[in-house]
Design a protein around this nucleic acid. Structure first.
Lengths: 128, 128
DNA sequence: TCTCTGTATCGACAGACATCGATACAAGAC
DNA sequence: GTCTTGTATCGATGTCTGTCGATACAGAGA
């Protein structure tokens, strides 16, 4: 159905989705550094809304021209935020003719999501 | 059993875990602002490791004295990071005698985790 | 009381970041 | 070729953040 599926080739989303939440064993410094970069990209309200806007756009992708309107900041600022999301590996992009299109990389979100997921037992009931 | 379960009373972890990932519909500005604060708390390698260290500690909680050792930064810096995690609603704490204990609030992590979770169709699955 | 230990707060400082206007670059229309 | 439009980059600036040493606060014990 979606053309989204084209984008996730080569990403092992399933592998990432299955394992080692951070509540299970301590993160080592290197992993923490890399993950912090991704969370840092999410740590801005405009970037969160951009990501959400892109992901929920029809077809799973959005033109930059669709993304500058909803915000009260300048075009260079939006472009900067898109670059941050790109460099964090959260979105991909491609120029098609005049326009540039962005889409979310689901594997990256899935990885963060699974990291934060508490193991079934621990989540609410905890320690038992 | 656990002393952790005492801490999750009043938090609707299950309710948070069920709904509205950001890839489904655009986040409004207010929600984005609040979520960005939580992600900002995660956007530092030391804080990620602290959180992971606390969560994976036996009993689900850790004394500050267990948390200062593993890092190359000063005690005030660790205290600062713990405060950031606290104010973001990611951990709770309590003084017991001389020591202060910290534990993770699973509902907060679950909320972020579910937010990032792509809907079944789109997520990774898409690749298949 | 005083002392000792564990933790938090304060004040200062350097580096990182969000934002802007100006400008460069890319592609289509003419 | 030139013009126009869409997007990215540059350079500057104000604000936020991570870090430290110094110090204050809390509780236990003598």
């Amino acid at each position: 159905m979606s053309n989204l599926e084209l984008r996730v080739l080569g990403q092992d989303a399933e592998a990432a989705a299955c394992c080692s939440p951070m509540v299970r064993e301590p993160l080592d410094g290197e992993a923490a550094l890399e993950l912090a970069k991704m969370f840092k990209a999410l740590a801005d309200p405009i970037r969160l809304r951009l990501l959400s806007l892109i992901a929920s756009h029809e077809g799973g992708e959005a033109c930059v021209c669709d993304l500058t309107g909803p915000f009260d900041v300048s075009q260079p600022t939006i472009s900067h935020h898109l670059k941050v999301l790109r460099e964090a590996g959260l979105v991909g992009c491609e120029r098609r003719g005049t326009w540039v299109y962005y889409w979310v990389l689901p594997a990256a979100l899935a990885r963060l999501s699974s990291l934060l997921q508490a193991p079934a037992g621990a989540s609410a009931g905890a320690a038992g």
